[in-house]
Design a binder for these strands. Structure first.
Lengths: 217, 217
DNA sequence: CATGAATGTGAACACGTGTACACTTTAGGT
DNA sequence: ACCTAAAGTGTACACGTGTTCACATTCATG
């Protein structure tokens, strides 16, 4: 709950704070999407109301709702890319990497609940532009993972193409994990079980890699 | 005595005209969802218009939009369950099962494009009731797969719980495949590549199973 | 045929919507 | 201290929405 009441006319003849409204609109959209079905079910006016802003003010910051959505998606993945870069996963021993990665990711998803909930919902139900944006970002992550895996001796017998196939499977498994974490009641200890399951699945995949034969044809 | 003896289907009391409008409404909803972002972005009136029916007629067949959506989900999975049952996958040799299953499923998804597109979009962006319905159906499929896998000698060393973990991974991989098939241009030969990738991923998983050790702790 | 339930119809209502417009206020560079 | 572009505000309009209500039609069954 915000401290000032949701009375729009209580503002002293104009809200001077700069750039604040833009942030407020984005946050409002996230909150509403989290409490409703999805983004397309929410109106511009509702977002403005939730942000404590007059409807027409929206246009000062975004061309339309689509632009807002794209900005949120961009923000999410910019932040995620930073996390993955700083984690420096490729400089770790493969042993224990799975557990560490899963915990890192799960933690991050929980810390950015609203953003990820937005992305999960819009991945298939969003506008064409949104869907494409999300898809492209996921492709980037998958490629980065493939490049990281290539540095491990355990993957030296895997062709570049197969590395991408494997990374794709890993990324999908992690995406599924995050979808489930977000579906669970926030303060629920149940997502330990979810993490354990994902961890098992990833270890299973890596076991398969040991027997995998990347020969042409 | 009544003379409706040779009528196989006992219609409800009164004069239920052929459920023509009901079918039209469902089909209209599917078409609109396929061409728009998702279900919540479509109004009752638009569905009625597309179905060639007056708005108020909607209420003769469904309590509200949610009920329509739930019916579509139910239909999709009823049909899918039938396919999987008739396929009798568990009576096949494990060898070649992967390729066969992938092709069967891909074919089926393409044949029921609109239905699956609906389910994919509503899986995370739908109403709570819809999301739960879809989730429950997927759990059923996963359990059935686990039971099927248990019959193969190759899985005899796997604990029941791990069988579910593995089935879960397999189901998620297949779901991802269908999402991608639906994203692709319908008459595009590109989904052969998608099927090949999914097939590789499933074989990788089953390779891991060979080395998997289901011991407690 | 007559009945009555299922089904179809059109008018009406109260309301939320996106957005254009003209206006005021603010903040930062000069 | 001034000027100007950016940000904020209230009004207004045309339109689509869900849902109600009373009425018309259909048609298997008694």
């Amino acid at each position: 709950m915000s401290r000032d009441a949701n009375k729009p006319s209580s503002r002293p003849r104009g809200a001077p704070r700069r750039g604040e409204a833009r942030e407020a609109l984005m946050q409002a959209a996230l909150e509403l999407v989290a409490s409703e079905a999805n983004f397309s079910a929410i109106s511009l006016r509702r977002i403005a109301r939730q942000a404590g802003v007059v409807p027409t003010a929206f246009y000062r910051h975004f061309e339309d709702l689509d632009a807002l959505g794209l900005t949120l998606i961009e923000d999410t993945f910019r932040s995620l890319r930073a996390i993955l870069r700083d984690a420096a996963l490729s400089s770790m021993p493969l042993k224990g990497l799975v557990r560490y990665s899963v915990e890192l990711f799960a933690h991050y998803v929980r810390d950015n609940q609203l953003l990820f909930q937005f992305v999960v919902k819009e991945r298939f139900a969003g506008t064409v532009a949104m869907r494409e944006a999300i898809h492209n970002e996921i492709v980037l992550v998958t490629n980065a993972l493939a490049a990281d895996l290539a540095r491990f001796d355990e993957f030296s017998h895997i062709s570049q193409n197969d590395l991408r196939v494997i990374s794709d499977l890993v990324v999908n498994t992690v995406i599924t994990l995050s979808e489930r974490i977000l579906d669970v009641d926030p303060d629920n200890a149940e997502d330990d079980a979810l993490m354990l399951r994902a961890e098992k699945q990833l270890r299973l995949i890596f076991m398969g890699v040991g027997r995998w034969d990347s020969q042409p044809g």
